[in-house]
Design a protein around this nucleic acid. Structure first.
Length: 573
DNA sequence: GCCGTTTTCGGCCCGACTGTTTTCAGTCG
């Protein structure tokens, strides 16, 4: 069983946490964190690299030592160093790092002075008023610890992009109404179009920062004001989302936008490039000595570093800076490139609308084609189509297509992959269709080996074209099932099949890293909305955002093709 | 622990805010 990148990264993260609490050199700690991040976001399997005896130390942030440790993990499944660390530092202490106000130094003090190892220990000490007596602590920190513990923030809660958009819309209107704002934009992971956001970073330019801040903290949705200053304030709104507002002067807009858009790793790389040129970048501009030489726009800052502009979606330090240096940035797909939608449902199964309504809605969006992919019978709650009903739908679509102008409905199905990997409908009916989309809706808990075999067996079916929502995840609700996506991609490539990037904002499945992996392996993806009602056809934009984060170009996307080209690709050899 | 357009040793992004102090350490992003 191969060791996954995520497992290796997790081990390094634990090492970093425990080393930090132990008081190790902070740069050594950072090295483990950087390595974890590199591995986490790598679009190829590290275990595979070890197997092929590739040189791991060529990966950024990984030197001889960490390369050796990676090999140890790949070969043995664990890291001796971590076990030793856990002997010295109670591993539960690492969990305390998530409590606001507590970092490695204070946790170390709590451990040494009060023998605190767990959240329970911490709560008891705080209730007894022991923490406020420690040097460097006080009443406020003790109070904050208790409040944090009560909120039971075990896992940081992230907000789906689609939900963040609604919050942003209201807040920006409110702030804009103050009338003293020039530029106003949400930066951070929101601007990078990440599938979920941890917080919101709002950036404004204004001559009257204090007044804006005053209005900000008085927003009606405020639950708590965490901090308030002249240039930066933080609030928590009732949903629990943290929102930062930063106000900078107009001449610093580009520098601040770059800085607050991140990612942190992207920025650090840029700053280091600047240092090598004797320049300093901060959120106020680019400086040569004390002299500001740029900062009004992001473009001029990139250009100063001899780079072309890099779009926010790519700013993850996953190779975009190197690509920019070599003039090899991808020409990312846009919503305008999309010519059709390859998964949608009608009243025939669990959708809300008729064939005619769906066709008209797709035509209005300028599409050439729309695949009607109602469910197969296995998912009983969806009222899935059996052979007979599917046959009738095929006839209905044929008739409708004769009347329709400017849009073609594709005769399709979203057929269930059964537990043994066979499909829920016989080949005789599948071969009548233009497109067969297959997917898993049951038995999520199989072992990785079995789940992977199951999926590959489904792809073996000569009528299968697209594997829909390949990992089954639902953001914030359901983890992806165990699946070796790399093997599935390789199997799809061999068989002339494709994978879906499901554009539903709570799925966005495949994720960005797997999209990039698919591209590198040469597997094309379908970006599909899986619409169950007319308005959901508009979710396409979330899929495109995610695709852009995965470096996809129009050529990598099935439904960026004209119908005639699409049909050629759907002919399996 | 990593890394090299001043370096194979000596650096490692940088500023704002808070709380605890009384000039600053720790945390955060």
């Amino acid at each position: 069983m191969p060791v996954h990148n995520a497992e290796i990264a997790h081990i390094f993260k634990q090492v970093a946490d425990l080393l930090e609490i132990e008081g190790a050199n902070q740069f050594r700690v950072r090295a483990y964190r950087d390595a974890a991040r590199t591995i986490d976001t790598l679009s190829q399997s590290v275990a595979e690299m070890v197997k092929k005896e590739q040189n791991l130390s060529e990966l950024p942030g990984i030197g001889e030592d960490l390369a050796g440790k990676i090999e140890e993990i790949v070969n043995s499944g664990h890291l001796a160093q971590l076990a030793e660390l856990k002997e010295r530092v109670p591993p539960e202490l690492a969990e305390l790092m998530h409590i606001s106000g507590l970092g490695p130094k204070r946790i170390q003090t709590l451990h040494k002075e009060l023998g605190i190892n767990t959240r329970a220990d911490l709560e008891q000490a705080a209730r007894q008023g022991k923490i406020r007596q420690l040097h460097g602590f006080g009443e406020k920190i003790e109070q904050g610890i208790l409040e944090d513990l009560e909120e039971a923030q075990t896992d940081e809660k992230r907000t789906k992009l689609v939900e963040a958009e609604q919050i942003v819309k209201l807040l920006l209107t409110y702030l804009q109404d103050s009338g003293d704002i020039e530029e106003l934009i949400v930066a951070g992971s929101y601007r990078r179009r990440k599938e979920t956001v941890g917080d919101l970073d709002v950036l404004a330019t204004s001559q009257r920062g204090e007044k804006i801040m005053e209005r900000f903290v008085q927003y009606e949705d405020v639950d708590d004001v965490v901090s308030k200053g002249e240039t930066r304030s933080t609030i928590v709104i009732r949903s629990g989302l943290h929102i930062d507002l930063r106000v900078v002067p107009q001449e610093s807009y580009g520098a601040a936008l770059l800085y607050f858009t991140g990612s942190k790793a992207h920025n650090i790389t840029l700053r280091n490039m600047a240092l090598a040129r004797d320049l300093k970048i901060n959120e106020y501009g680019v400086f040569k000595g004390d002299q500001a030489i740029a900062g009004k726009t992001e473009v001029e800052i990139y250009n100063l570093l001899d780079l072309p502009y890099i779009v926010p979606e790519l700013r993850e330090d996953r190779g975009e800076i190197e690509a920019a240096q070599n003039d090899q940035l991808p020409e990312l797909i846009t919503l305008e490139d999309i010519r059709g939608d390859l998964q949608s449902h009608t009243k025939a199964s669990d959708g809300r609308n008729t064939l005619e309504e769906m066709a008209e809605a797709a035509r209005k969006r300028g599409y050439e084609y729309l695949a009607i992919t109602d469910h197969s019978p296995h998912v009983a709650v969806t009222h899935g189509l059996n052979v007979e009903r599917l046959q009738r739908q095929i006839e209905a679509i044929d008739q409708l297509n004769e009347q329709l102008a400017d849009i073609v409905l594709l005769k399709s199905i979203e057929v269930d992959i059964l537990a043994d990997g066979s499909l829920d409908l016989p080949d005789e009916i599948l071969q009548e269709l233009d497109l067969v989309v297959c997917s898993i809706h049951s038995q999520f808990d199989l072992s990785e080996e079995k789940q992977t075999e199951r999926v590959i067996r489904a792809l073996d079916n000569p009528y299968c074209h697209i594997l829909a929502h390949p990992t089954g995840r639902r953001l914030g609700e359901r983890q992806p099932y165990a699946l070796d996506v790399e093997r599935v991609l390789e199997a799809a490539l061999e068989r002339g099949c494709f994978l879906e990037l499901n554009a539903q904002p709570e799925r966005l499945d495949l994720n960005d890293v797997f999209c990039q992996m698919a591209k590198e392996k040469g597997v094309k993806l379908a970006i599909s909305t899986d619409a169950h009602r007319l308005a959901e056809l508009d979710n396409m934009r979330f899929g495109v955002d995610q695709a852009r984060r995965g470096w996809l170009e129009a050529d990598d996307v099935l439904n960026a093709r004209h119908l005639s080209d699409l049909k050629k690709l759907l002919r399996r050899a």
